[in-house]
Design a protein around this nucleic acid. Sequence first.
DNA 1: GACTGCTGTTACCGCAGGTAACAAGCACGT
DNA 2: ACGTGCTTGTTACCTGCGGTAACAGCAGTC
Lengths: 232, 232
Amino acid sequence: MRTGTSQRDDQRQTAQQRRKELLEAADRVVLRDGPEASMNAIAAEAGITKPILYRHFGDKGGLYRALAKRHTDALLASLRAALDAPADDRRQRVEATLDTYLAAIEARPQVYRFLMHPADHGQPEPEQGFDVGHHSAPLLRRLGEELATVIAERLELGPGGDEVARVWGHGIVGMMHAAGDWWLRDRPCARGQLVHHLTDLLWGGCRWRTTGSAHRASEAPAAPRVRLAARP
Amino acid sequence: MRTGTSQRDDQRQTAQQRRKELLEAADRVVLRDGPEASMNAIAAEAGITKPILYRHFGDKGGLYRALAKRHTDALLASLRAALDAPADDRRQRVEATLDTYLAAIEARPQVYRFLMHPADHGQPEPEQGFDVGHHSAPLLRRLGEELATVIAERLELGPGGDEVARVWGHGIVGMMHAAGDWWLRDRPCARGQLVHHLTDLLWGGCRWRTTGSAHRASEAPAAPRVRLAARP
DNA sequence: GACTGCTGTTACCGCAGGTAACAAGCACGT
DNA sequence: ACGTGCTTGTTACCTGCGGTAACAGCAGTC
């Protein structure tokens, strides 16, 4: 066994390499055909047959998990960078982070679709694909938890602050996701606009400026004006 | 054959009635077996066979769409009620709405799972089910648009306000959804707590109280203290 | 040469969604 | 009475998917 560098290591290395190749092939297929790509298609793209895929990744979930991890890690890294980047104030940092996320999903919507809605049962029905929906994906969880720790670090929330931070983390991530998802489809405005609107919301936008129809006019003390005019 | 209950009566019923019965049967199955219920199972529960289901609903998506519409409409109605209910201030109304949503998904998680993540491929793997995710479902879109109109009505946002309202609508709904999804699984706190934390967030919570680690200490002017201690 | 561990294959299973094709009951217009 | 047509139901099948034997080569090691 232990003789020299050995065949075992070589084998493992080639196995890793092979795995990487397979992942890249899978990536290509998923990006081309969408998340509903079949194992057969992926195997064909890789120039092999199904059982090999299963030997490497166990089952379809395993493959998709591995595939998702790469993209998730990449996205998370850039988000962390934006979150840690120097900025004049927190608002700028928040805007930068939101913008990073939105830029990512804008640049590679296919990847985004795969990470978020991998179960879309194909686009044979380009109509009002009801899809019966699907749900939020572990990526969102990871993002939520990640953001929660950052919030807990950065804001001093006192006792019970961890709980608050987690709620806020998941809430903010959900806001970002839903708004991004909707924006990506309807494209109602420029990215920068969306970022500003979302930051306004996070900055308590829906707190001020009540209309007369509400019971008490304004409970906002010295409300810092909401910015909503179009910006250059 | 196998008249079972009452074939004669069934025969007399109109297509609409039959459809309703089928939907109710499907509902039962989905609530029992989860969203991955097969057409065969649903047909069996209804005491008939597959082709009939297909005649009534076209395909599985049609059935699920019809099924989802009922629950969606119901949920939406109660949300609208909460949103329109009399309250002392807007914060109370927001809290009531959030609480209504969370109470609904808490009371009937199966329905919620069906509406939001109907594609969950079963729970044969209670482990770290990566699931590869799924996505947000039209219900969220509908909620987002709905809330957007309410926001546009209730807050006077000036020119371009409709755009802001839509962004906020979808953002808030996403926040609610993601936080609820996470909360429903981890149950880290009582529902009321979650509601308060989320409202704090919406009220601009993440704006104040920066820690020293950040670059500039505090840009919050006369920060109204964030409420986060446990409340009765 | 026998053994091991990897690569790869073909051929199959079970089950899902979905679709003929055909059989029965009832309502008619003649 | 009769056929015609509609609806409701059936059985039996197709396709394609995820997943799994079982077997065939081809290293290097003892």
